[in-house]
Design a protein around this nucleic acid. Structure first.
Lengths: 152, 152
DNA sequence: GGCTGATAGATGACATGTCAACGACCTGCT
DNA sequence: AGCAGGTCGTTGACATGTCATCTATCAGCC
């Protein structure tokens, strides 16, 4: 059964590096964000997506699709964010099953305040450590992997 | 306050790409692994690290340091893995505070069985999608970011 | 109208990981 | 010997996310 194509050294280095970097990088950026604004990364993503949405509102399902989240995950998360006053749910007049999530004043203010420090944190711990070529390559890699994962 | 260095298009593409890829890729590989072997990714990492350790055993603290995990995380996880019979804890004779984790027969068998399909999954969804140059670049990127995160 | 199947969202049980706090033990200094 | 401070591992409370399942509603078709 030794037709297994084990990873060679370079492949192993890239894969394990990715795994380890992911753990530390996300933890670090999540901590910066939480200390600075009280938001978690998922909170930030939701607020940021809603902030870009028409009227600061979106259907739950559309939002989940845009963020590549499961409906369940978004539903749980929106429930928690609503309890904190960052967003509100509203019934959808066109579709009795549906619901909108809407950014509140507080939610909008929170993301506006959080954004600069968050971007700074992302730069400091990640983006500014890479060359222009590496950034381009990383963009290519992630786009290709995402295309593979969403079409299969 | 507009001295904020927002991300430009290429930087944004790389950062958001990374975030999105991470979510889908890890979910996909975790599902493959769970379906195939009943292990989670953290389970696999622990077993795999123990498998490479001298005598299939390690001090909790050393293992945590090697894996870049918090002691708390490892402690919780080992407790759960012990309940499933994958590892055992043993007292450390040299240091009354310490403890060893040791791979069981079952744990060793499980990782041996799981590895080929896991590597195959990692190849299919990630490594085999990249060129050699991209793999090298990714290794460089992750090494640099990790060095930054662990020395600061 | 009334069925059938798909879709939107909510929910409960469970696994995971964080942080903060704790007890136990070791080490070095006095 | 005895104390002070650090280290090892554990624990409890909590946040997050998964999966499976459920209800309500919609859409197409008879």
């Amino acid at each position: 059964m030794d037709d297994v194509r084990w990873l060679n050294d370079r492949e192993f280095r890239a894969w394990i590096g990715y795994r380890r970097m992911r753990g530390l990088l996300d933890l670090r950026i999540a901590r910066d964000l939480a200390d600075d604004s009280g938001l978690s990364e998922p909170d930030y993503d939701v607020l940021s997506n809603l902030g870009e949405a028409e009227g600061h509102r979106a259907r739950l399902n559309d939002l989940a699709a845009r963020m590549l989240w499961s409906r369940s995950r978004l539903s749980h998360h929106i429930t928690r964010m609503q309890a904190r006053g960052l967003v509100v749910k509203e019934d959808c007049p066109d579709d009795g099953r549906g619901a909108f999530v809407v950014l509140t004043e507080k939610g909008w203010g929170t993301i506006e305040e959080a954004a600069p420090a968050h971007v700074e944190s992302v730069r400091r711990h990640f983006i500014d450590l890479l060359t222009e070529d590496e950034i381009t390559t990383l963009g290519d890699i992630t786009a290709r992997v995402l295309a593979h994962l969403t079409n299969s």
